[in-house]
Design a protein around this nucleic acid. Structure first.
Length: 801
RNA sequence: GCUGGUGUGGCGGAAUAGGCAGACGCGCGGGACUUAAAAUCCCGUGGUGGCGACACCAUGCGGGUUCGAUCCCCGCCACCAGCACCA
């Protein structure tokens, strides 16, 4: 038959929808498979080929699982709150609701045109009231458990988008949305105490099947370190200066201290500081430095100012040491103050050199007059620690001592910060909190959820970064739910990441009005068996959603701690020029064009055939045509169906192919699975005929990749029903073994001939066949045979001198 | 700087409990069909030398272990990604 993709794709998509064959069941004895892909943000630009690749992996797995008899949940939805829609609304004065609905409609049409086997009866949209009701519900549960707090602090602020950003959203000092420079601004910020879950998030990684690099990135992001807190006495001041250090055992080498420019001690003890003017001007200077200067130029040129007026006392040596402020100490990590050990820390060493401070080595080895020594060695100049060899022992001994003296204790620190959770925007979930003059921050009662977004005429954010919601008096003014007096609503909304932090739970029970999902359904479906998505979400969405899920576990909503059993990530599709696809480069490929010109089956096959699934690969239109040719040649097999039995060779090749495709899909080696089918196709075409039964087997294993063509061929061959829900073929173990095999014969490790031997023959027989070979005889001529090696089924190597 | 990863034909990429390097696809060359072109089909295709059978060289570079190394070990180089004055 001819591969008339235009006709058959529409036909089978309609049939699948009509018969709802991809609908997951909630009542069945079948084993379950929950396959998940990161739901898209329905942007105005429509679908990208990256979406196709990201979804195709779980699509193939889900289709295979259905055929293997699983009850499969493979859902899709839309993560639709967010800035791009709102910015577009500001520009066009169209309501974000209208824009979102249009975009979702277009995305849905596009997804369907590719033939993905999503269960469209469970589509969710994070901006719908019946969805964000539960996002708000989870937030209030966190509020109830003390995981939400408000603080006035310096935050990452994007002057262009006029919003507060989390650390994750401002990596490298750039706004994640508009890429402009982020500045530090004092703001009232709602935080989620994700740091409380740092240890659980770390430990949970032991129980899940994520690629090593993803685990590593999360571990780095959480950034746990062990050390000690040490309190230093300041002369003339009652309060102690607390520092965090990972090397308390180097205390005897501490010759000065440094505090961050924003350290609260500066203002608190201003009257004790004799050079306040100098210090304040230094602080101002630091605030002016751009993020680039602070992070990229990890300069040896340290700056700072001595805090005049008091000294600190080293708690172990009792010596007086100076205190400095310098911007190489950050307020956001540890206590914002450090004990400096110039002999063994390069930054401290650089600072000490510049300010001419003593450098006292306490670890033997290296030459501290030239640079800091950061290696291991015996402890010296360290009183009771002298002679300690192991870092671990000396650290433990010092902590013991500090605790005995009451000046320090063991402690841990994390790089991860609490999650800044508010945005001054309209198109997000309203934060359900009321500010009452008597009661403080009060939760909106659960039965008043959802707290709906009010209607709005103008979506511009306020001038000083206030939320557009602040302009609506009817929304802002309310009664305190506790005491009933006049109160004001919180006008900030939640960040983009809120709705996606639990969406996979809603798919399980998307229309439930009473709970975010019914417990028995959650218990049946969770955890997600396989989750595929992008590497860019590893330190954001993936951490955030694990955090929320751990919380939901702690309050008994779900019964498993970790939401995702297995995670994989697709590699990026680059433009034909090998560069990242972008409008400005003009190298963007529109998947819908490919569907139109070559068909959905070709597109699906190609994105999986391109190369290793997890690796980046450039697009090639010529290779797309290669996949199209493959499908056309495959379709033509119906023309050579014959009654004649297939040869043993073909029979074996078919079963080997079934085995390979089955195994490769599980290992996400889609490219080699497709290559195996191409190879077999070539063999069959050379043979000139194939039986109907064998072709049906091949149609089945092709179906996850090219389902429309597979359905059409399945029917052409006279089968009833859908190949998509037919039984996945099992290979016959007896048929994957060849009766004879070809192996290589080497002389002194160099290939000289190949021979055909009976499969499973013994060493003597293999060697005698090898020696009979003319080329081998010639190669051995005039030489003494020293050694004969036979690796069964692999190789013969004859060593001769 | 630290962490993780990758280097294989003209191109995308196969093959690692150490066993015929280059599967499959693209591209290219030749042929068939055609008035012609496209499409399709068949043959060939790592490099160098040779009419040839064949020989030599080839998996980033330099060593090592081994009968045998793309794979293991030691030392380099290049590129990609993430983090980065994290105490």
């Amino acid at each position: 038959m001819k591969h008339n993709f235009k006709a058959i794709e529409k036909k089978w998509q309609a049939a699948w929808a009509e018969d709802e064959i991809f609908k997951a069941s909630d009542n069945t004895d079948k084993p379950k498979f929950y396959g998940l892909v990161e739901f898209p943000y329905p942007s105005g630009a429509g679908m990208h080929v990256g979406h196709i690749k990201a979804y195709s992996s779980i699509e193939v797995l889900s289709r295979k699982r259905r055929m293997q008899g699983y009850n499969v949940l493979f859902p899709i939805g839309f993560d639709a709150f967010g800035l791009p829609t709102e910015n577009y609304a500001v520009k066009t004065n169209k309501h974000p609701r209208v824009i979102t609905d249009e975009n979702i409609k277009r995305f849905t049409k596009q997804l369907k045109s590719v033939g993905f086997s999503f269960d469209y009866s469970r589509v969710i949209d994070t901006t719908q009231e019946d969805y964000y009701k539960w996002t708000q519900w989870i937030f209030l549960k966190m509020f109830e458990k003390g995981l939400v707090f408000r603080d006035k602090t310096l935050v990452n602020y994007c002057p262009h988008c006029k919003v507060v950003l989390s650390n994750e959203d401002s990596q490298g000092g750039k706004c994640d949305i508009c890429h402009s420079d982020v500045i530090q601004k004092e703001k009232d910020v709602w935080y989620l105490r994700i740091t409380e879950y740092a240890d659980k998030l770390l430990k949970g990684l032991d129980d899940v099947d994520y690629p090593e690099n993803i685990k590593q990135q999360q571990v780095n992001w959480i950034g746990k370190s062990r050390g000690a807190f040490v309190n230093f006495t300041l002369d003339g001041i009652d309060e102690k200066l607390k520092v965090y250090t990972t090397r308390p055992d180097t205390l005897c080498g501490v010759t000065f201290m440094v505090i961050a420019p924003e350290h609260p001690f500066i203002d608190k003890y201003a009257d004790k500081i004799s050079n306040m003017d100098e210090i304040l001007s230094y602080r101002e200077e630091c605030q002016k430095k751009s993020e680039f200067e602070r992070t990229q130029l990890v300069s040896k040129d340290k700056t700072g100012v001595r805090v005049a007026g008091f000294n600190a006392i080293n708690p172990i040596t009792k010596k007086e040491i100076p205190v400095y402020i310098s911007d190489y100490v950050m307020m956001g990590y540890g206590t914002g103050a450090i004990m400096a050990v110039p002999a063994h820390d390069q930054r401290d060493w650089d600072f000490a050199k510049k300010f001419d401070i003593d450098i006292i080595p306490v670890i033997e080895g290296g030459d501290v007059t030239k640079e800091a020594y950061t290696g291991d060695g015996n402890m010296i100049n360290s009183l009771f620690l002298d002679g300690y060899k192991k870092k671990k022992d000396s650290i433990n001994r010092m902590i013991e001592e500090l605790e005995k003296m009451g000046v320090g204790e063991a402690g841990v620190q994390y790089k991860m910060k609490d999650w800044a959770f508010n945005r001054q925007r309209y198109w997000g979930e309203p934060i359900p909190i009321v500010h009452c003059p008597n009661c403080g921050d009060v939760a909106v009662p659960f039965d008043e959820l959802p707290l709906k977004l009010p209607e709005l005429e103008n979506f511009e954010p306020g001038t000083d970064g206030e939320s557009p919601l602040a302009k609506i008096d009817s929304f802002v003014n309310c009664k305190c739910p506790k005491c009933g007096c006049d109160a004001k609503r919180e006008t900030d909304t939640m960040p983009q990441w809120a709705g996606s932090s639990w969406y996979f739970l809603r798919y399980i029970d998307p229309h439930n009005d009473n709970e975010l999902a019914a417990k028995e359904k959650l218990n049946y479906w969770m955890p997600v068996d396989w989750y595929n998505g992008g590497m860019e979400h590893v330190t954001r969405h993936l951490i955030y959603s694990r955090f929320w899920h751990h919380f939901l576990y702690d309050i008994g909503v779900v019964d498993c701690e970790e939401p995702y059993k297995k995670r994989s990530a697709q590699g990026m599709i680059l433009g034909e020029d090998g560069q990242k696809m972008s409008k400005s480069r003009g190298n963007v490929i529109d998947p819908l064009d490919i569907v139109d010109i070559y068909g959905a089956d070709t597109l699906r096959t190609y994105v999986l055939f391109m190369g290793e699934y997890g690796a980046a690969a450039p697009w090639s239109d010529a290779s797309v045509r290669g996949c199209k040719r493959f499908l056309e040649r495959f379709a033509s097999l119906t023309d050579i169906v014959s009654e004649e039995a297939d040869s043993d060779k073909i029979e074996t090749a078919i079963h080997k192919c079934i085995k390979k495709v089955s195994e490769d899909i599980e290992a996400m080696k889609f490219n080699t699975a497709i290559a195996a089918m191409m190879g077999l196709l070539n063999d069959i075409i050379s043979e000139g005929h194939i039986t109907k039964d064998n072709l049906t087997l091949l149609v089945k294993i092709l179906s996850p990749f090219a389902p429309h063509l597979a359905e059409e061929m399945y029917h052409e061959l006279g089968n009833e029903g859908y190949v998509s829900i037919s039984k996945w073929p099992e290979y016959d173990p007896e048929k994957v073994v060849d009766s004879t095999i070809e192996i290589a014969v080497q002389v002194n490790g160099k290939l000289k001939a190949t021979i055909v031997i009976p499969n499973g023959c013994d060493k003597d027989e293999a060697l005698s066949i090898a020696h009979d070979n003319e080329a081998i005889k010639k190669a051995l001529e005039g030489k003494n045979l020293v050694k004969e090696i036979y690796v069964p089924g692999k190789i013969v190597n004859l060593v001769a001198k």
